[in-house]
Simulated assay, not measured.
Amino acid sequence: MRAYGLTLATVFLATLSLGSHAKALGQNDRYVCSWGSDIAAGAQQSKLAGVTLYSARKRLQARKFPKPWMRMTAMGITEQTYNSQSRLKPAAIKQTYYEQCVHHAVARR
């Protein structure tokens, strides 16, 4: 069966490859990618629900973050999500963000 020009075997191999890359990453990189994907999914959910960027940013300002860099990073992720034309479901955004983050972290090594 073909889906968008990809065979199921190709998709399966890509998934296995991503899994092996994620295992090769350190715990900190996996945590950062997972955290960022949660922020992106939350921003997409807010965007689709009609919450304004201003309101989403105010929520982030009021939120407590365990590390100092997280607040500004969350603001950036949220702004990029709102600026995107994407209407994908939050779960798809979360998966896409995580996959791209892992690929970036692996390429950075």
Rank of each mutant, 00 (worst) to 15 (best):
P90A: 08
L88W: 13
K67A: 14
C33A: 10
I39Q: 04
D38Q: 12
W69V: 13
C33F: 05
G36T: 05
R71A: 13
I93W: 01
Q100G: 02
E79C: 02
A49W: 00
V51D: 05
M70E: 15
K64P: 01
F65A: 08
G36M: 12
K47G: 06
A40Y: 03
L53G: 10
A91K: 08
G42D: 14
Q45H: 05
Y97L: 07
V51L: 11
R71G: 09
L60E: 07
G42C: 11
A74G: 10
N83Y: 09
R71W: 07
Q45A: 13
Q61I: 12
A43F: 09
Q95E: 09
P90S: 08
Q45F: 01
A56L: 04
K89T: 05
Q27N: 12
S34Q: 14
A62Q: 15
W69T: 11
T52P: 04
M75F: 13
A43E: 06
A24S: 15
C33P: 03
I93G: 02
G76E: 04
G36W: 03
Q95Y: 04
T96E: 10
T96K: 14
Q45K: 12
A74Y: 04
A92C: 05
L88F: 14
K94C: 02
N83M: 12
I77P: 04
K67W: 08
C101A: 11
Y54V: 14
R30F: 00
H104A: 15
K94E: 13
S34Y: 10
W35D: 05
W35G: 08
A49L: 01
Y82Q: 06
S55H: 09
Y98H: 11
R57A: 13
Q45L: 07
F65L: 06
K58R: 11
L48G: 07
R87N: 11
C101K: 04
G50F: 08
N28R: 15
A41P: 06
R57M: 15
F65R: 04
G42K: 09
I39V: 15
